[in-house]
Design a protein around this nucleic acid. Structure first.
Lengths: 203, 203
DNA sequence: GATGGGAAGTAAGAGGTGCTTACTTGTTGC
DNA sequence: GCAACAAGTAAGCACCTCTTACTTCCCATC
């Protein structure tokens, strides 16, 4: 909106685009040190600005972190959507793919993943976060609905979706938190997800 | 050990028993503000000592927090053990009871629960934490072994136990983190756990 | 019993944090 | 051209972790 107010996209102002730059810097820091392990000062330092500069773009620390979490949720939703659509094979392939995708995301961005779900500092019940999270869950419900018998009540579809989510969510967290030292390879994980999908979806 | 060196239990030294007092204070603070939301200074203030006093008993912040987590793990193990032993009814009653117990613990001590699993600051792979955690998991394996057909290989028992753990773990976290707004009452949760137990244990 | 040693406390301070305030700089709309 | 305003800075407050140097008080020993 402000980017294209007049003629050119205003390639740089003072810093260029500090706001976006900071969000990306913080994303990296969250991965490196965890959501509570980094400081805004450090992000500013890395961005090459003074420690007060971030507060021209964000009201406080929580708001920056929120932005990172929100972007993470959207990123995961896209990946889930793609994974489900590209799945093929047995009837439950899309469900299985969603589970694998969930675990992959958690492994590839454990910091952001933890952030997305553990956010409690100044975000007790942020409606926007909630909303974007539900958009993820909608993908699950869509795919579950597609494999359940015609005429299955919505509430039952939701119940099965919740079960699946609980399972993959637990799996993802136990994995990135290093419990379950028994780490399975991609094939074994796929088999596990397929097994679970079957157990949850069938009667 | 030091308590009963000679004659009397030495009711108080300087403060009494600051170390234990601090661990309990920090446990409360973890519940109130989260593992990263409280300060050692605050714990010291509540205990009525100077902010340097804690460092006479703990090497650093991480060590106090570790103590709280460790105690939490043991507390959960005891509750799980009791829940499994007291369960009665259908053959899967003990498995179901374990799931309910897990969720109840998470709800009653969400701060400590999160701490027990999310500990990553200075505890990348603390063997003692790992060990006590496995003692919890042993309870699950014991009960799963008891309800599986005779002669089931240990590896299969472990696999089913892992599945169950993933599920209840995901359920617990999604619940305390406020995802799954659909909050079910005790009866519905019990039914859900029973359903899951059946799905995971049967062929 | 006095006394020295060591455990358990304190005060003060270095270095780091979040965030605010007052000031400067540079761009853009008119 | 210039006023307005967005986006930066430096300095500072209150708080944090953890260290250092100092005090206090219990206890064992002679």
């Amino acid at each position: 909106m402000e980017q294209a107010t007049k003629t050119a996209p205003r390639a740089q102002y003072h810093h260029g685009d500090l706001r976006a730059h900071l969000v990306e810097t913080v994303r990296v820091l969250v991965e490196e040190k965890g959501a509570d392990g980094f400081s805004i000062s450090e992000a500013a330092r890395r961005a090459g600005v003074s420690s007060a500069a971030p507060y021209k773009h964000f009201s406080d620390r929580a708001e920056i972190v929120r932005e990172v979490a929100l972007a993470g949720i959207d990123r995961m939703r896209d990946q889930m959507d793609a994974a489900a659509r590209n799945a093929s094979g047995d009837p439950l392939a899309s469900i299985t793919a969603l589970g694998v995708c969930y675990a992959n995301f958690a492994r590839s961005e454990p910091g952001v993943f933890r952030l997305m779900f553990g956010l409690t500092k100044g975000h007790d019940d942020d409606p926007e976060l909630q909303q974007h999270g539900e958009a993820c869950f909608d993908v699950v419900k869509r795919e579950v609905g597609a494999v359940m018998p015609e005429g299955t009540p919505l509430l039952e579809i939701e119940r099965r979706s919740l079960m699946l989510h609980m399972f993959v969510h637990g799996h993802a967290f136990l994995e990135i938190d290093g419990k379950h030292e028994m780490d399975l390879g991609p094939d074994q994980e796929h088999a596990l997800m397929a097994d679970i999908s079957r157990r949850v979806i069938r009667d």
